[in-house]
Design a protein around this nucleic acid. Structure first.
Lengths: 239, 239, 239, 239
DNA sequence: GGTTAAGCGAGACGGTACGTCGGGTCTTTTT
DNA sequence: AAAAAGACCCGACGTACCGTCTCGCTTAACC
């Protein structure tokens, strides 16, 4: 997962969370209904506090792990009142997710443009996929990413809403990059025309995640290469 | 994964956990050494309480979810003192893991013999794999199994020790069934002799788990079939 | 305490509190000195808000009791910003005190003139005192007055500043009415010439307040009468 | 109020509060009714914690005043969990009341016997009353007693339940001492046979409390003497 | 068969963190 | 320039559980 920016277009920061329900605006936009809970006014939000909260959350998760990261601790470290966290996020996990998305977005922006996240197309499909999968392997092994990512994945397994946000904002965009590259390969005749790109992607990414999540066997570049080789062999144009 | 019993041999119930370190006996067995923490005497353990704790834990996880399942709640529901839990398990997750293993073992026993957990070998590799993968899909979609399994998977992602126990006791035995079936197929000439059975298993199971964990797309029998077809195509003997 | 207006003369409304120090003007009047905290300009004060705050404060104390009456609640009910309260009063109790004084003043004005608050002098001292003490008893038993008065008394016990304001603005003027009536009686020869009017007043009022504050025994007209009889008997001209 | 022990008989310490409802056992003793909330088991109560809480509460009230004394602060100072306070008392004020009662009881015990709290009967009623009233004046002026007493009185004004407890445990026993002394005087012919002892007591104590509560004029021995003289003059036997 | 010692139900205890409330300050926009 | 609005930092609230620590009580195992 070489830190792709979460969407196809450029992401102007800040991207303020619209309300305490970390996610899309729950109110239909037809105005505050009778039962509508009074949402805070996002235009008055303190950008300073928002950044401090993100920084504190990421630092604490990295230092102490997710289980020992508390809302109270984040607030104290950020020099912020607890209420300022509860005003804008519904849970500790939601804070961390937004913090992580923010981190990804800034990293992508720093890398310059969105081109960095697209899978290159050198004409050699195997080489291109190996390049990206190896980068993903490296990222999964990097301590700085491992902590937050494991925490979010774990929370997403249990909490469907958060899992949906996680999948939508982080996972799917990545998978789509693979899908596009394989579609291009199909049009170029590098894989069988009947290939289902989505399934192909899952054949590549699924085993990788499986090892990472369950820590069954070490994640190496060699494993990434072997995966690509086997999958592409199965997808080769049939006679 | 149709509830295989965790080991190759018959498992006589009860299989009492030997100490508060949920796992193999940490003390060498040469008697309580000078610095050894006094472990409880497993022979005096109340089987009645152990079962009540398992039942309560599974019931509460199913009813309220893992996050709302507390040690205090389990103790109260089981009619047991808190200390009786802390005496035998180091954490809430360890209790749930043992409860789940117990459940699996009883289910396997009820199904009769250990043969039920081995992958059948009808000579048709694709059919055999589809049969088992479809069963796994059904299990993943079954609410009674989903709750505890998600909870354990999530906890295992974060807690390496528990994850190791989970992998070792539940996951690996299952994977080994696949490995043995594919090795048999290799010897029968049904797949390429250069096939790595372990990688092949991960190509089958990884995508399935990926969909289950991240809830990206629905888990269906058709998906299981497609997985088997694509993987076996890639493993076909290279003429 | 039949709602006497707080001073001997007519009180033209409004009587805006001059500054956030609820009390007499702390600034010497020579204008804002160099180190003087910048006080708000009372001439620009919104009479509308002031009245709304008083109404809200009294309503909330009556409805929910003093303990549950918050500055935030008063502001919300009055349709006023919190700062508008903090700008003009130093504490919740000060707001309530001013609100109560305002209520008293309006009640007195409504009763017409200031004569209503003076103790009548019919020539029969005992009858006059009984008349007024019975009215005081009735007021103490009236729920509408009991709530705010208890709250203010309680706060005054703890907070010396507020207690001084309370005593000065509400209590002393009442006591002075008694003092004047007893002085008149002394001049008329109805009580012993050596009588200390102040002490006499406290002998009448002290026991009444004692019962009210500590709720030891019921406050009745009979008790008021008995008090007057005993006290006057002790004050009777000595042969 | 020369620290009388709260009852006529000897008070064996400890006198544990029976439950979280600071007061007499609310359950009739007919067994736990269906709606009965589970009360803590007083026999397992930690005397050590109880004393530490009392000491901390009194120290904090004396040092910082009642308004700045928090449950959290008491718990921290006493080295006790907050829940241990909430388990046994319903409110901060109830803690302070029990702490104060405990203080009184210990002081009385230290003074030896219960005789110290009875009003002496030397045959000279005026002298006896002056002696006790002067002691009361001294106590009211003593800073160590003033803080907690004002706090409790204030809270009792607002909270009827606490006020009842305060009156019953502290005030009434004192008043009864006066009542008994005056009854003795009546039987001895020192006061008019028609005298109502209760009213006489309130004539003595009411004005004292009035000055103390409202801080109108200083509380002196001279005032105490004057009170006794005037009241006794009114009660003199009507020849 | 009586003693002893462990497991056990129960739950009080010192703590940590929760999520909420409100205090008092500050800033932005409106009147 | 005061006022309405409300976000902010902060402290305390009362609650829920944590994991530890006694209490009696029961129940073996060993005298």
């Amino acid at each position: 997962m070489p830190t792709p920016e979460p969407g196809p277009g450029p992401t102007p920061e800040p991207e303020p969370t619209p309300g305490p329900q970390s996610g899309p605006e729950p109110d239909g936009g037809t105005g505050p209904g009778p039962g509508a809970r009074t949402l805070p006014d996002a235009s008055r939000r303190s950008e300073r506090s928002r950044r401090a909260i993100f920084d504190a959350a990421l630092a604490l998760v990295t230092e102490n792990g997710y289980a020992k990261t508390t809302v109270e601790g984040i607030a104290a470290r950020a020099g912020v009142g607890k209420q300022t966290i509860y005003r804008w996020w519904p849970s500790r996990a939601a804070v961390l997710l937004d913090a992580f998305l923010d981190l990804q977005a800034r990293a992508a922006e720093a890398m310059g443009g969105d081109a960095g996240s697209e899978i290159p197309d050198t004409g050699d499909l195997a080489a291109d996929l190996k390049h990206v999968l190896r980068a993903t392997v490296d990222e999964m092994n990097a301590p700085a990413f491992e902590g937050p990512t494991r925490a979010l994945a774990a929370e997403g397994i249990t909490d469907p809403d958060l899992g949906a946000r996680f999948t939508e904002a982080l996972l799917e965009p990545q998978l789509q990059h693979y899908v596009r590259r394989i579609e291009a390969a199909r049009e170029a005749g590098d894989v069988d025309p009947g290939t289902d790109p989505r399934l192909a992607v899952e054949l590549l990414v699924g085993p990788l995640h499986h090892r990472w999540i369950h820590r069954t066997l070490p994640l190496t570049h060699a494993y990434a290469d072997a995966l690509v080789d086997h999958v592409l062999h199965g997808l080769a144009p049939r006679s």
